[in-house]
Design a binder for these strands. Structure first.
Lengths: 190, 190
DNA sequence: GTCTATATGTTGATAGAC
DNA sequence: GTCTATCAACATATAGAC
């Protein structure tokens, strides 16, 4: 790749995220990153002294992005269904690239992570669930969406469908994942 | 012809399964096994020459167990709801032990696995889905269960709820998982 | 900020004795 | 079937030059 990264740190974060989504946190090394970015492993350690720091940085980046999405998604003129579609399409994109959700990926390695990162991960997941819950709550209120569960529980059901859906898709194929997405929409349609 | 496995081999399989459920496939080593079983790492290699062989052995054991469960679950006198409870309680047990479903765990490491193991994993998952699908199908037929989706799709929805549910429970706690389980039951109740 | 060079431990694995 | 002994390869990590 001839694209000279304007910011090595950003590139490391981007590649680290990808490696977690494709191979898992405990399956990649700093060598994978340094080779791909054509830098030395010491350069990676300069930006992220330890692998845990890299993981923390990646999760921080996600928290930041969802914070932005949470604010943006409240914009008027977008229906609750469209908002829900924004979430679903994120997972569909992952699925298409043979990646899985970073939360699900890191979850397998949860017990190998330091406490500080566990806490950060909890923050991220509560933020994601909170955004989905809010979308569902508003959609239910204005009659656009309909479902028997509370918005909190419905957000749990939808997010587990999506997270494990992309995991499953790796093995059984994309067709099953697409059927899951269709059902999610059908279940909340009034 | 069934060869009786040695106790050690069984112990390695048991412990290997546990390590995958607790720490993930790429996070444990043969040293973890040999230390815990108080044998030398060479002894582990005797039973499973490579780590992939161990993973294959673990998946094979699961396939065998689900084959037995698939046969047993057809026994008369058990309602479809009770059969569904058998599945749910397996995940609840995992949740209680802070473990996650082995399929979900291995899924993160999917792209680091040899083709032969990927195929085996596909076999296992189709078997599990098939059993759940059959339970749902029969329950729907005799009016015991009711849901708008096809049995196949509903099995996908339920299994993704459960698999990601135990993953989530590690982070957000058992309460969310229990709410998911309750909803699964409610959704299929007629 | 990136490099060279190096340290130190771990990993998965094997050969051959008992 | 288990052991001792040993291995090359790789992992994470740091010191100090440029």
């Amino acid at each position: 790749m001839t694209v000279r990264p304007t910011d090595t740190k950003e590139e490391i974060l981007r590649l680290g995220t990808e490696l977690i989504q494709v191979y898992g946190y405990n399956a990649f090394s700093y060598a994978d990153i340094s080779k791909e970015l054509d830098i030395k492993n010491a350069a990676v350690h300069y930006h992220f002294p330890g692998k845990e720091d890299l993981l923390a940085g990646i999760i921080d980046q996600y928290i930041q992005r969802y914070k932005e999405l949470g604010a943006k998604i409240n914009a008027p003129g977008i229906t609750a269904k469209q908002k829900l579609d924004v979430f679903i399409s994120r997972y569909t994109d992952l699925c298409e690239q043979n990646k899985i959700c970073i939360i699900g990926s890191v979850c397998s390695d949860y017990n190998t992570m330091p406490e500080s990162v566990k806490t950060k991960l909890g923050e991220l997941i509560e933020m994601v669930l909170g955004i989905v819950e809010k979308v569902l709550q508003q959609g239910k209120k204005n009659g656009e969406l309909d479902f028997p569960e509370t918005a909190r529980v419905k957000s749990l059901l939808i997010m587990t469908n999506l997270a494990a859906g992309v995991q499953l898709a790796r093995i059984t194929g994309k067709k099953d994942y697409m059927a899951i997405c269709k059902s999610i929409i059908d279940q909340v349609s009034s």
